[in-house]
Each structure stands twice: as structure tokens, then as C-alpha cells.
């Protein structure tokens, strides 16, 4: 089982869209997938047309087993939904004996091929606990200076986790890519100069990605041929189809 965290402390960079799209994509490619919402906004359930619920709260505070809390959202795809009670769960984590290991302990016996953790835009104890449980981190980022700074913050947290002896890989996923804007290209070039092959092909800015959650559909269901999924232009080099392919490579490593 591989555990992949989607993280960036900056909000609005496409974390939940990426988490939901990749989780459903993996499920469609025959990977039994669990998507865990660690954000009190509870948007994972919303995006898949399910009800917000205190799933993470029940796992952490009530210590209910995963199979009792998980909700089937699609074939091969279960979710642990979140809601505002996730915030209360964080307080339980803080006062627990081994706060940074709580998610590792909970997920250790999860019977899935892949677990995707959708983080809240914050750097708290749950965030560190998620990194400690993870094999790989995907860091979505808009291509602007503030969002790219958020990448650095995540990498600092990851550095602390690595210093504790935990092995962790990562990739950077540029989102809201607008090829007509000079700043976008400048920031992409800066990311590539710094992080080289860690930078995955970008996700084009695409209104479909904003519309799909309103219908409770994933991008694969709502618009599988849209730029956000397939990239744009004649080369079709970017988009979530490309991200999914690289994620499968990570899982198979």
C-alpha cells in the first residue's frame, strides 16, 4: 500500500481538485483507493456528491475502524469524509501521546492499494502526522510567487520529517497553468530551475474544474476530454491524465 499526501499550506491551489481527480483516476485504473479528507471544510465528499460527515473525527477521537467509517464514493474508491469536527479531532491529536504518528497507526492496517490524504491549507500537527504516514507528497501550486513560497514551506516540513528518519519522495504539480501569461512561464521556469524533474507537467486553467464539484462529479465523469484532464494544444502533454500516469509510476516504484 502506498500513501500519497496532497499538500500546500497555501489555499486555493487545487489540492482537493487534484486529490479527488487522482483518487478517482486511480480507482478507474483498478487501484483500490481510499481518499481521506483532512480539511475541516469537508470538500472531498462535496466534490464527489456525497455528504460531509465527521469521518476523520470518528477515526481519531472515537477510534472507530476504517471499514466502519469509510464511505463508498465510486467503484474502487472509498472516502473518509470530513466536516468541521475535523478541527476538534486535531485537538485530540495534539494531546495524544504520539501526535505525529497517529495517522501512521490508523492507516497501517488499511486494506487498500493506495491512500490519498487531502490536507488542509495549514501547517499543524495533523499535517506533520500525514507526512510521517506518507510515502510520497504531491505539492500542487499555482504559478505565482506566493503559492511557490507555499511549496518551500511544505518542503521545510518535509525536511523535518526526513530528519526523523522517514523516507519521503515528492513531486510538484503546477496548477491553473495559463500559457498566455508571462508570469506563469517565468514561475514555471523558476520551479524547473530549482526542482528539475520533480516538476510534473502542469494542469491548465480550466473552468470545467470549477464546475465539476457543483454537479458532484469528478473531472473524469464531468469532462474527460477537457484541457484540465487532457492538456491543451496539439501536444496534449499536460493535464490530470498525465499526472495520473506519473502517480501510477510512483505507486509501482
Amino acid at each position: 500500500m502506498k500513501i500519497i499526501t496532497i499538500a500546500n499550506q497555501k489555499g486555493g491551489v487545487g489540492k482537493t481538485t487534484s486529490a479527488v481527480t487522482l483518487a478517482h483516476g486511480l480507482a478507474m485504473t483498478e487501484h483500490r483507493t481510499l481518499l481521506v479528507d483532512l480539511d475541516p471544510q469537508g470538500h472531498v465528499a462535496f466534490a464527489l456528491g456525497a455528504e460531509k460527515a465527521p469521518g476523520l473525527y470518528r477515526l481519531i477521537v472515537d477510534e472507530d475502524p476504517i471499514d466502519q467509517v469509510a464511505v463508498q464514493a465510486r467503484e474502487n474508491l472509498d472516502i473518509i469524509p470530513g466536516d468541521k469536527r475535523t478541527e476538534k479531532a486535531k485537538r485530540t491529536v495534539v494531546i495524544s501521546n504520539f501526535p505525529t504518528e497517529i495517522l501512521s497507526r490508523i492507516l497501517k492496517h488499511a486494506d487498500y492499494d493506495v491512500v490519498i490524504l487531502d490536507m488542509a491549507p495549514s501547517l499543524d500537527v495533523l499535517h506533520v502526522s500525514a507526512l510521517m504516514a506518507s510515502d510520497w507528497v504531491i505539492i500542487p501550486t499555482k504559478l505565482d510567487a506566493m503559492a511557490v513560497d507555499g511549496v518551500n514551506e511544505v518542503l521545510r516540513s518535509m525536511g523535518e520529517v526526513v530528519e526523523r528518519g522517514h523516507r519521503l519522495g515528492y513531486s510538484i504539480l503546477p496548477t491553473f497553468f495559463d500559457r498566455t501569461t508571462r508570469e506563469t512561464i517565468v514561475q514555471l521556469q523558476a520551479l524547473v530551475d530549482t526542482f528539475k524533474g520533480r516538476v510534473w507537467p502542469p494542469i491548465p486553467q480550466d473552468t470545467h474544474a470549477r464546475e465539476a464539484p457543483a454537479y458532484g462529479k469528478s473531472l473524469w465523469e464531468y469532462c474527460s476530454k477537457s484541457p484540465a484532464v487532457m492538456g491543451y494544444g496539439t501536444s496534449l502533454v499536460a493535464g490530470y491524465a498525465s499526472t495520473l500516469k506519473r502517480t501510477v509510476e510512483v505507486i509501482c516504484e
Binding site: 521545510r156 524547473v192 526542482f195 528539475k196 524533474g197 520533480r198 501536444s235 499536460a238 506519473r246
Partner: peptide, 14 residues
């Protein structure tokens, strides 16, 4: 991120 291994090759699509 000194302890993290960094890949050198750029993704061909990027």
C-alpha cells in the same frame, strides 16, 4: 530540503 533526493532530469513534457 537538504535530505531529500532531487531528480536531475526535467520531465520531457515540462
Amino acid at each position: 530540503s537538504n535530505n531529500l533526493n532531487r531528480r536531475s532530469a526535467i520531465d520531457p513534457a515540462v
